[in-house]
Amino acid sequence: MEDFLISVFKMAVPLLLCSLGTLFSEKAGTINIGLEGSMLTGALFGALGSYWTGSPYVGAVIAMCSSMILTLLFAFFAVTICASQIVMGVAINTIATGLTISLNRIFLTSNGVVRVNGFKNIAIPFFSEIPVIGKVLFNQTLPAYLAYILVFVTWFVYSKTDLGLKIRAAGEHPTACDTVGINVIRLRYGTLLYSGIMAGLAGAYISTGQLSAFSEGMISGRGFTAYAAVIFGNFTPFGVFRSCMIFAVGMGLQYRLQAMDTPISYYFWMMLPYLITIVALCIYRNRSNAPKYSGIPYAKN
């Protein structure tokens, strides 16, 4: 049980990082399904950075920068050029696929699979001594702590600050924002870049935190799941947290059940996270908080 909880809380980290980041860009009115590609890029550069410098933290910074640049490309076309955001997202994913596979072959796998230094667990004194909870919550890697702290920080920024208010308004009624002097375009750029950075960190966590290596298909839809978590979480920070945890339980369960000898083949358990995502989208009835202008480019006249 303890192992299961540990694995759930680990699984949730990249989802949380990515969804909490994209929550802002979704609220500001853009749909970015290029998250998958951003995470993939982050995963590669995280591993590369760690491989080059020996430090996973430097790797993470490089990962964040790289996926931010990729998201900048998305933002330029989605916000300034007003191109279809969904198709642009697919393009970003395609580019990320090409880029990561190429660079992986050039730098990493040219001499066999490389294992890189991963994030080390940092046990928080005293708290980590608490039975069960201590091991599950207070013996984590730095990005994991960050992810859980970020839930509260995101909630604070989202609901208590001027910036959060502007972001919430931008996706609801961009014209109204314009009339009170808010620069919607800049807001959308900013939130997109932030979501790119967080997706990069999430990717780096997957490659250097969970597996200590990069493999080409390692994101396997988690970018989409993170995006679905925002929808399923009704676009609120704690809602996102809840849905990320549900998805993480699905993923943890998947590994758990794979290991156990169940009468159902383990490949079906592999499908579990994807099925849960679909079901979550279908039972998502409370759309009260979904931005009205989601995915619609805003062109000032």
């Binding site: 191109a83 393009a91 395609t94 580019i95 696929t97 090409g98 880029l99 596979i101 190429s102």
Partner: peptide, 14 residues
């Protein structure tokens, strides 16, 4: 690497 073809595809879509 043959995978640069994907990069090419992405650029075309964009």
């Amino acid at each position: 690497p043959s995978s640069v073809v994907y990069l090419f595809q992405g650029i075309i879509i964009i």
